[in-house]
């Protein structure tokens, strides 16, 4: 079976660990325990065209820039999820910076941008125009919620599909 390494990239507290927990263990907690270093999980997915892929998920401690440690953790990644917290506009900014840094490190790799915490509509701060602009550039963006599970499975299997295409 094919294995692929993917990294969870994004500012702190955007919900990287929560997304992995929802995806791998179907669970969610309101508590925030920041990730130190990196946490690894695995899960089997089917790409949208029916292939089995084992994803090795590297949940890297969040930061608004790429730390040296994170740079080493990135090595050999076949793709990544770029996560922002939809209720905090600054995390969008850091995600753009992070993507640039990651691309510099890995070269162009498939990625999907996740606008997480979609369940918190009241505090939502990301305008549709921002999203449209990125879609125009060919990015794939998904509104997700680790809390309700919205689009979580879809995000991972879409990324798997993208990685197999390469």
């Amino acid at each position: 079976m094919i294995q692929k390494k993917i990294c969870m990239i994004g500012d702190f507290s955007v919900g990287k660990t929560s997304l992995v927990a929802r995806f791998v263990r179907q669970s969610f907690s309101d508590k925030y325990l920041t990730t130190v270093g990196v946490k690894i999980d695995t899960k089997l997915v089917k790409s949208t065209d029916g292939h089995d892929v084992k994803l090795i998920l590297w949940d890297i401690a969040g930061n608004d820039t790429l730390t040296t440690a994170a740079t080493s953790y990135l090595r050999g990644s076949a793709g990544f999820l770029l996560i922002i917290d939809g209720t905090r506009l600054p995390t969008w900014e850091s995600a753009l910076n992070l993507r640039e840094a990651v691309t510099k490190q890995l070269g162009e790799k498939p990625f999907i941008m996740l606008l997480n915490k979609a369940d918190l509509t009241e505090q939502w701060e990301i305008d549709q125009e921002l999203i449209d602009e990125k879609v125009q550039e060919g990015w794939i963006l998904l509104k997700t919620s680790a809390k309700t599970g919205l689009n979580v499975e879809e995000a991972f299997s879409e990324l798997a599909t993208q990685m197999l295409k390469v």
């Binding site: 390494k5 990196v38 690894i40 084992k54 090795i56 040296t68 440690a69 080493s72 953790y73």
Partner: peptide, 20 residues
């Protein structure tokens, strides 16, 4: 256990030690 995860973890530990 999950040998894939263990394998990745070994690598992460090495990275961590080297960087830290």
């Amino acid at each position: 256990g999950d040998s894939d995860a263990v394998s990745a973890m070994f690598t992460a530990i090495q990275d961590f030690i080297r960087d830290s």
